[in-house]
Design a protein around this nucleic acid. Structure first.
Lengths: 260, 260
DNA sequence: CAGCCTTATATCCAACTTGCATCTAACTAA
DNA sequence: TTAGTTAGATGCAAGTTGGATATAAGGCTG
């Protein structure tokens, strides 16, 4: 039998298979603190709880494609904007009981965007929810990430209306574990990769870059040492322009320039 | 409607879904060089080509469980031995055309084991293949990994019977990409994690540890600096015993002791 | 406009880390 | 005993890092 014959006779439905979804950890900064986009579930299971936006993977789209679709449909992004956000696959979660409906395996993605874009995404996601006549719209949750080295500790999410961080949100499914892994990954990659720039606008000052690092790591860093390391790395190109609107010496603005 | 009512009425078959497999990159050292377990495909598609061992994910097993099952069924490991090998999830591959039969998403796993266990696994995998009356049994492929920093370059696999490395093996599906990612991940984690110990026996000398690092990285390392770094890390406990059978000064044997 | 306040940026130094050469120890074989 | 070989220790120069301090550059205030 040739390979063509084999493929013609093949029955794709011969074996039962788990369902496959993608879930998206869309992170940004809110007032200098790490935050994540959550949607409140209006349907069973776990109705009322907060969850990461996600979707079933269709047969005609890749995993990355499904993650992009979630970004478009649930965060209201235009295709061109989607292309500009940082996206990476995090991990695939396949515990047997992670969804009470049936066996569902989910591929978790991490998406990052600058503070301004993140704020816009939250607003548009709320509009998407209203258009769909959904009672509770999406919302950002502020993250509380205790410092326990780069590994990251247990992550708690709080509603924006809970500035004192009294009652952590109860997340649906295993989304708390996914969120914790996202933060851990972000922390681990922060120092040797270019993820931090995904959280900054096109032009930024060294202080802003340091603020992003400090917000993600949850520690304070030594300023001269940080500047030296960042500049020596050769990823920063001075724009020549200066920060505007300060009442003190304005800082040089830099752009991220891909190494080589 | 309550959540229970919802779940009773839920139709799991409502949407078409991709098939889900796990593929295993089982790595070890052969004569001090990195090697991987490959099986020659006897069935379509890609009959005759070399492939990573894998299997469809069943509804009643986790992803990790499926990877362990592949280790048992295709490499002939006993359940107790499976528990002792290092295993970690690598990445999930979901390109639309990665399998000509149908849409198949695969979760790739990396498994590591010491040189002796790897040799035994190869022998048992061959026995498993013979018992299944499969023409071509499994085989180790030696890897040729050019040095291009920790990122790793394009990985080529060669049959053990091709010591001059003339004709790289043609791998089935996207398994060459999976293999390349496995090597890259291994290189990246080598220095800050404990993966290297998964490639060593229970007791080992500092020279053996350095040999493993050099084999994976493809470079030579400075001996005193390497010793210092490893000992300062606090992961190594001297056993008090010495290497035997040398015709020169025998080295101290160490055990890996989990930090904290 | 001079001085003040605040933050950016540069410089300096001591402590620590790393690469590397060299020295000493321990074993076998002859 | 001596030569040969590798393990393990030590010393040093060069590079890196944390942290204090000095200088620069804005706007603001009187």
């Amino acid at each position: 039998m040739t390979e063509d014959d084999f493929l013609r006779a093949y029955d794709p439905a011969a074996f039962a298979r788990p369902a496959l979804t993608v879930d998206l950890v869309l992170m940004g900064l809110r007032a200098g603190r790490p935050a994540v986009l959550l949607v409140q579930r209006t349907q069973h299971p776990h109705a009322g709880r907060w969850a990461l936006p996600g979707s079933f993977v269709r047969l005609d789209e890749t995993l990355d494609g499904a993650a992009e679709r979630v970004l478009r449909d649930k965060a209201g992004f235009a295709p061109a904007e989607v292309a500009e956000t940082h996206r990476e696959q995090l991990y695939t979660f396949g515990a047997l009981d992670r969804d009470p409906r049936m066996r569902i395996v989910t591929v978790a993605y991490l998406a990052l965007m600058p503070e301004a874009a993140f704020a816009a995404a939250l607003a548009r996601a709320a509009a998407v929810a209203r258009a769909a006549a959904v009672a509770a719209g999406p919302s950002a949750a502020l993250l509380d990430v205790p410092w326990s080295g780069e590994a990251g500790g247990p992550v708690a999410a709080f509603a924006p209306g809970d500035p004192d961080r009294r009652t952590p949100l109860r997340l649906a499914f295993d989304h708390a574990a996914i969120l914790a892994l996202a933060v851990q990954r972000l922390r681990g990659k922060l120092d040797y990769s270019d993820v931090a720039f995904a959280l900054l606008p096109e032009a930024f000052t060294l202080r802003q870059l340091q603020d992003v690092h400090e917000a993600i790591l949850g520690t304070s860093l030594n300023k001269p040492a940080f500047r030296r390391r960042m500049l020596d790395r050769g990823w920063l190109a001075p724009t020549g322009a200066r920060e505007a609107g300060t009442s003190f010496r304005p800082a040089e603005l830099y752009r991220f320039q891909k190494p080589l």
